[in-house]
Design a protein around this nucleic acid. Structure first.
Lengths: 259, 259
DNA sequence: CTAAACCGACCGACCGGTCGGTTTTTTGGT
DNA sequence: ACCAAAAAACCGACCGGTCGGTCGGTTTAG
């Protein structure tokens, strides 16, 4: 099936350069005929060694990974199906054998990003009893996912809202809303618990605990904003990395800038 | 010059519909010949009354406003120059009379967004003496600018990073960095002042005040993230509006979710 | 009469997607 | 083990349409 990326063989696009690469030889090279049968490999690509045909699930995964990388680098609309095919050393027709269209590729990328969020953030967090611990874990795991160089689907999902057709977009938006709602309820629990733990003389004068000055909904949007915006400014060589960003963002949420 | 939008005359695109409208009559209609001279107006557009030719600055402003609205609705790459021209009831050639190219339009929109930030946020804030008041004002003004239905350039600038060519992008990025730096230094001042104001018995044991647990840089990025992300979730009919969002985001930054 | 504003045909390139192939791999029978 | 047929994977020409941008005009304003 599709050749996997091999050192020296991978397409190396610049940050915003358009390297429109036509495939120079059959990408599925299991035949006894080598690349010389149908062309000379490009100067930046050694012949890929033959390999067993893999199942279709792996083909689709490979396409989605490559497409996600290109969509992240150039944007969905500015990336063509020809670009995606070239990066995979496929023809466009070959790409269309695996996916019905460009819409489906974007949808699967975004859906996969929601799966990642479900598996890497929500599921672990749901297993934690104490709300404050749960919220701290959610912040850490969400930041880790946004910062992960492997999970490019996440930033594609964060950035590309408009291009999906309405029916597909709705399905993604439903999952996003569920996530926001989960965060909101979690913050509400943390705020409620914090009041329970306060000395009686602070709350005794009230019939019930006063509402916090920051509503759970506003806090949820603020938290998601500060974390999701990381993809806009983060630099792997910058001074803010996961290990010092996570505690600071966590402290900020719980205690503000003056904690 | 260009007709300004008149009730009943304005292009009404759906959120993601592509209304490819060809101009049906000369857009500069000062001639004694009315629109009937060259065609019947479209069903959704009454004839625009003739008006004095305006100067080129206003033409360019009108084009930038319209382009910003379309770029915000559909994205820069998914909006064509033909789309922009149609929305202005111009031909594409007419559009190219005012701007050298699509790049220039996006650059001017983003530059204008930085001007708006300079005039509506930075300049007023610089006139405030107390750092904490200055930071509170910055939060309020920045949120107001992001929420402003008129200042679509802001959300275009927040969203469209990649499409500009490197030289133009660099110029915008320099201004963005200046803004981030300003916010960072302001937060550092606020944190410093907060320590000055603490009772001696809390700080006397230290040779100098301990570093806050949230660095100014992390706090600046977090603050900009929570505010800039508003454009992704904000709904005019939602329960979170400027007047209740501003105090909550301010309280969150200063005191966290438990204040 | 000149300049500004505008138009519409046109350019080469590319878009998403299709289709009629070829090539490669898999499968089943001998 | 071999072979032929079927299926899967892939290719490249092609489709109608559109892209950003140009150019030789026409129309309108000064």
């Amino acid at each position: 099936m599709l050749p996997v990326a091999i050192a020296g063989c991978q397409v190396q696009p610049g940050p915003f350069s358009f390297t429109r690469e036509a495939p120079l030889f059959r990408s599925s090279l299991l035949s006894v005929h080598g690349p010389e049968r149908i062309g000379i490999p490009g100067p930046d690509c050694l012949p890929c060694p033959p390999m067993a045909r893999e199942n279709t699930v792996d083909s689709r995964q490979e396409i989605l990974r490559t497409a996600a990388r290109l969509f992240q680098q150039r944007g969905y609309d500015a990336t063509s199906m020809n670009d995606v095919a070239a990066a995979l050393k496929l023809s466009k027709g070959g790409l269309y054998h695996h996916f019905q269209g460009k819409d489906e590729i974007l949808f699967e990328i975004m859906n996969h990003a929601m799966e990642i969020t479900q598996e890497r953030v929500l599921a672990p967090v749901r297993g934690i009893a104490r709300p404050e611990d749960r919220l701290r874990a959610l912040i850490r795991l969400h930041i880790e996912v946004v910062l992960s160089p492997r999970d490019r689907e996440i930033t594609v999902m964060l950035h590309e809202n408009h291009p999906l057709p309405p029916a597909l977009r709705k399905r993604i938006n439903v999952r996003k809303k569920e996530y926001v709602h989960f965060v909101e309820q979690l913050i509400a629990e943390v705020q409620k618990d914090a009041h329970k733990g306060m000395p009686k003389d602070v709350t005794a004068h009230a019939a019930r605990p006063p509402k916090p000055r920051v509503s759970p909904r506003a806090a949820a949007f603020a938290l998601l904003g500060m974390i999701n915006w990381i993809y806009q400014w983060y630099k792997p060589e910058g001074e803010l990395q996961a290990q010092n960003l996570i505690p600071q963002f966590t402290d900020l949420l719980f205690g503000g800038i003056l904690s």
